[in-house]
Nucleic acid binder design. Structure first.
Length: 261
DNA sequence: GCGACAG
DNA sequence: ATCTTGTCGC
């Protein structure tokens, strides 16, 4: 897949000020409503499906994107899946020009991700990106930045909350399938306080008391609503905390990392 | 000045 | 994210 909005390609040489200005522009362009060809119910694990009319329908292409690092190099891996099966894998290695700065992650990792996406022969119907989407100070997290730049539906899947107010405390975890709404707070300067910007999602939980799994933080990246973003994550999770496409991309990045000079 | 902060 | 063995718990 290709860049559709060249002006949004993350440029690490920009000043912090310019980066933030670009993010506000990206947020205005982003669509936090459903505009995708994926039905979460058919996104899970049985590859070929059948429609009500008996027509053969192929499951949507759901891709996972994740990065690994080796010194000043970022390795971005993309794994495209369809009904749980791997359709294609691609990865790219790019130098990181700036350090990790909360709120500006896309300017550090975005370039490598776009490079990996451009090597894909199949265009995913939706991308699960590691990190935040709309749950961001200017509603332009990594998932949103990437989604808007290539104009593909994206979902942000993070392990920690960047900002925003959970409807209930997230400590201790919840039963599997639980979703706790996260609302915009003062830290999210571009949204009206109270706006539903994402969910804490419990994709997995231990049976007994003592130990517990923390929920994932899911938010819309682009062309996906908060509800659908969570539906997709729950539908593609298969017994583990991370959704399958993300887990696959995770280890693909680690493998690729091994072969980096 | 203090706090808060994805990967 | 990354550096890393054992260890606690199911």
């Amino acid at each position: 897949m290709r860049v559709v909005r060249p002006g949004f390609v993350p440029d690490p040489s920009l000043s912090r000020e310019a980066m933030e200005t670009l993010q506000r522009e990206i947020a205005e362009t982003a669509v936090f409503e459903d505009d995708l060809s994926v039905d979460p119910e058919t996104a899970s694990s049985d590859s070929e499906q059948t429609t009500l009319s008996g027509e053969a329908a192929s499951a949507p292409l759901v891709a996972g994107v994740d990065q690994a690092f080796v010194d000043d190099r970022a390795v971005s891996a993309v794994v495209v899946t369809q009904g749980g099966a791997v359709v294609e894998r691609a990865h790219a290695v790019e130098r990181t020009e700036i350090p990790y700065i909360p709120g500006l992650l896309s300017f550090r990792e975005g370039g490598a991700i776009l490079a990996a996406l451009e090597r894909l022969e199949h265009d995913p119907d939706v991308l699960l990106v590691d990190g935040s989407g709309r749950i961001h100070f200017r509603e332009a997290g990594l998932a949103t930045h990437v989604g808007v730049t290539v104009d593909v539906p994206t979902v942000g899947v993070a392990k920690n909350l960047l900002c925003g107010a959970p409807e209930r405390p997230l400590d201790g975890g919840f039963p599997e399938g639980t979703r706790v709404p996260i609302h915009a707070d003062d830290a999210i300067e571009t949204a009206t306080a109270g706006t539903h910007v994402g969910d804490a999602v419990q994709t997995r939980q231990y049976d007994s008391p003592n130990r517990h799994v923390n929920p994932l933080i899911v938010s819309p990246g682009h062309r996906v609503s908060a509800e659908t973003a969570t539906d997709l994550v729950l539908a593609t999770a298969a017994g583990y905390k991370l959704p399958e496409p993300t887990r696959l991309a995770d280890r693909a990045a680690d493998e690729a990392k091994t072969e980096v000079p």
